[in-house]
């Protein structure tokens, strides 16, 4: 939300991006507040006032961040390797998409496998196998035993409904 940039070579640039992000959040707050009915009742403070106040605060902080960036006061982040981040985010995205169509166990197994791959564990098929075992155990404990409602697909039906 406040940042969209991963490996930044110049911290200054990052500071401007962060400041822009904060200002954008402030903008959204102000835009939303403008659409609210302004009725504070006896308090005199209505539903739109506090979001406005937060937005002004964010704008102020955004300004200070620009100043800090110009002075180079932001800490320099260490060099980042983008590939592992993409593996993990890919795993999360796949889980999100597959959760309801195919169920909790396969979707989570894939998340597990891709995270492990992101941390350098190969081969992928073995990660998937380990992930399946873990996800099945988690499903058994949480859905069956603790009665949480985890989305089930054909695999869960086959193993647990019998």
């Amino acid at each position: 939300m406040s940042q969209g940039d991963f490996p930044a070579r110049r911290p200054q640039g990052a500071a401007f991006a962060i400041a822009a992000g904060l200002a954008a959040v402030a903008g959204v707050l102000l835009w939303d507040a403008a659409g609210l009915k302004q009725d504070g009742g006896y308090a005199g403070v209505g539903p739109a006032d506090v979001p406005r106040l937060v937005a002004y605060g964010l704008l102020l902080l955004s300004g200070f961040t620009v100043i800090a960036g110009l002075r180079g006061e932001l800490p320099q982040p260490p060099r980042q390797a983008p590939a592992p981040v993409l593996w993990i985010l890919g795993g999360l995205g796949l889980q999100l998409v597959l959760l309801h169509p195919v169920g909790f166990v396969p979707a989570s197994a894939l998340l597990f496998a891709m995270t492990a791959r992101g941390f350098g564990q190969k081969p992928l098929w073995r990660n998937i196998a380990v992930g399946l075992v873990l996800a099945l155990a988690v499903y058994a404990v949480f859905d069956r035993l603790l009665k949480l409602n985890l989305p089930g697909g054909p695999l869960e039906q086959l193993i647990f409904q019998g």
Binding site: L96, S108, F112, T115, A116, L134
Partner: peptide, 27 residues
């Protein structure tokens, strides 16, 4: 090993979210 560890953490992290409210928006 760290790959297994963090992979497991990710599964549990998403589990908490799914168990409470299995909606794609939440995830």
């Amino acid at each position: 090993p760290r790959p297994w560890l963090y992979a497991g953490i990710m599964v549990f992290a998403t589990l908490g979210c799914i168990g409470l409210n299995p909606s794609p928006v939440e995830l």
